[in-house]
Simulated assay, not measured.
Amino acid sequence: MALIKSREEILHMHRAGKLLAACHREIAGRIRPGATTLEIDRFVEKYLERLGATPEQKGYMGYPFATCASVNDVICHGMPNDTPLKEGDILTVDMVVNLDGWLADSAWSYPVGKITSQAQSLLQATMDALLEGIRQAKVGNRIGHISHAIQTFAESRGYAVVRQFIGHGIGRRIHEEPAVPHFGPQNSGEMLEEGMVLTIEPMLTTGSWRARIDPDGWTARTVDGSLSAQYEHTIAITRNGPLVLTEQ
């Protein structure tokens, strides 16, 4: 059962979301060939500290970093490292911001320098799939309306939707009910109610939707080495439609 947030609680989450969006804008200017994901991670931690926030991921189930940094065939939960980014890479940075006890969660995929047309098309389709899902996040619909819209759009463009990793409710904890798959039948899942706050975070690939986990226990890759991208927003269900709390 989803936890319903009051208008005031959503305002708290919106403040966290605005801070997170500002951090992503700063990150965008730091992604270039030769930069490392570990440098970006350290910047994020210092940036949040300066503004009175903390990275909720750090320490979560033992995860040691402020961000997840996923390059090329890494779907999600990539661990920052000191390997320089290369021209043509695509990098997804995912983070959860805690501001005064309330959370916001957003992932963004970035081109590193000039990328191929295939990679650019994947980024655009993944962003568009997220927007298709958000449009369905309204009172009276079901979770399945979001799921089905994303899957239908992605597959119509020739992309696969990763199934092992899904969206979720969020509030004072990273993962709350309800689960938000990015695939499945339309009339499935919990009914959407005013005051729900969810993450919608489709991960698309140019090949198989299946993932494998690296020996580090975190890094999830496509089984066939195909490219993957992800975009994620935290959204609130309101009587006036979806409110994006992490808008850039």
Rank of each mutant, 00 (worst) to 15 (best):
M79E: 12
M79T: 08
L85C: 10
S121A: 15
I150V: 14
G113T: 02
G88F: 00
G167M: 04
R142C: 10
I150W: 05
D73G: 00
M127I: 06
D82H: 10
P84Q: 11
P64K: 00
V71C: 05
A69Y: 00
M79S: 11
S188K: 04
T116H: 10
P181H: 02
E132S: 09
A125F: 07
L192W: 03
E132P: 02
G88V: 00
C76G: 04
L99P: 05
P185R: 00
F153S: 04
A137M: 04
G184E: 07
E201R: 14
I115F: 11
T83D: 11
N98Q: 09
R163P: 01
M95G: 06
C68I: 03
I170L: 04
V93N: 09
V162G: 04
I170S: 07
I143K: 01
H175W: 09
A66K: 02
N72D: 14
A129Y: 11
D82G: 09
M127L: 15
P84W: 07
T126L: 13
T199Q: 04
V93T: 04
G144E: 10
T92P: 07
W108D: 09
K86E: 14
A66W: 03
G158R: 05
V93R: 03
E176M: 13
I134N: 01
L130H: 10
K114P: 01
S109D: 09
Q136Y: 05
S188V: 05
A119T: 11
D82R: 13
N81D: 15
I146P: 10
C76D: 08
G158P: 06
H148Q: 11
Q124I: 12
S106V: 10
R142D: 06
N187M: 12
E194P: 00
R173P: 00
M95R: 09
S70K: 08
Y110H: 07
L131T: 09
L122V: 13
G101W: 08
V74G: 06
L103S: 11
L130N: 12
E194W: 03
P111A: 14
Q124L: 14
V139K: 14
D73P: 03
R142G: 06
E194R: 01
V96Y: 08
M196Y: 04
T116M: 12
Q136H: 10
S117A: 15
E201P: 01
R172M: 08
E193F: 05
H175F: 14
A137T: 06
Q118I: 13
G167T: 00
T152N: 13
I146M: 12
N72R: 12
N72V: 01
R172K: 13
I143S: 02
E177M: 11
F153T: 05
L91R: 08
C68Q: 14
W108I: 14
N72A: 08
